[in-house]
Amino acid sequence: MADLDIMDRARAAVTDRVELPGMSLMDHLGELRKRLLHSVAYLAVGFIVAYIFHVRLVSFIQKPLVNIGLTMTMTHPTDALNLFLKTSVVCGAILASPFILYQVWLFISPGMYANEKRYVWPFMSATVGLFLAGAWFGYRYVLPGAMVILIQDFGKNFTHMITIEDYTSFFLAVILGLGVTFELPVVIFFLALFGIVDAKFLLKHIRYAILAIFLIAAVICPTPDPIGMCLFASPMLVLYMLGVGVAFLVHPARRKAKETTAA
Rank of each mutant, 00 (worst) to 15 (best):
G243D: 00
G138Y: 01
M23S: 10
L36P: 11
I6Q: 14
V104M: 11
A247Q: 00
V197G: 02
T223P: 09
P226E: 07
M72W: 02
G155R: 08
N82A: 06
A212D: 03
V40T: 15
L191C: 03
G195E: 05
Y113E: 13
T15P: 03
D3M: 08
L32H: 07
A173P: 02
V104Q: 08
A146C: 06
I216H: 10
S59N: 13
T163W: 10
L215C: 13
L43D: 02
D27P: 07
V148I: 12
P235F: 07
I196T: 07
A2P: 07
F107K: 01
T87R: 01
V246N: 02
R255S: 09
P252I: 01
G243K: 01
S109C: 04
H76G: 02
I220E: 02
A262R: 14
P21W: 08
V90I: 15
N67L: 14
L85P: 04
L36R: 04
F47G: 01
P98L: 10
L202Q: 03
A257P: 08
A262Y: 10
T15M: 09
L184N: 01
A44P: 10
D5A: 14
A10I: 09
V45S: 10
I151Q: 05
L85H: 09
C91K: 03
T223E: 09
L81V: 07
R11C: 12
H160M: 13
S59Q: 12
Y113L: 15
N67R: 12
V250M: 04
L43R: 05
I188F: 08
L203Y: 03
N82G: 15
V142R: 04
V40G: 13
V238W: 06
V246Y: 07
S169I: 00
I164T: 11
M1V: 13
Y139P: 01
R17M: 15
G111L: 07
D166S: 15
I206P: 06
A41R: 10
L37T: 13
L20Q: 04
F182N: 02
A218M: 05
W121L: 15
V197Q: 00
G129S: 10
I175P: 03
A262Q: 13
M161P: 00
R17G: 13
M1N: 14
Q152C: 07
V197T: 08
A13D: 14
R254F: 04
L81T: 03
V219C: 09
V148H: 09
M23D: 05
Y240D: 04
A114P: 05
D153T: 14
F201S: 11
L249G: 08
A133Q: 03
D225Y: 00
A199R: 02
S234Y: 11
L215G: 14
G155M: 10
G129K: 06
A96T: 06
R35Y: 05
T181N: 13
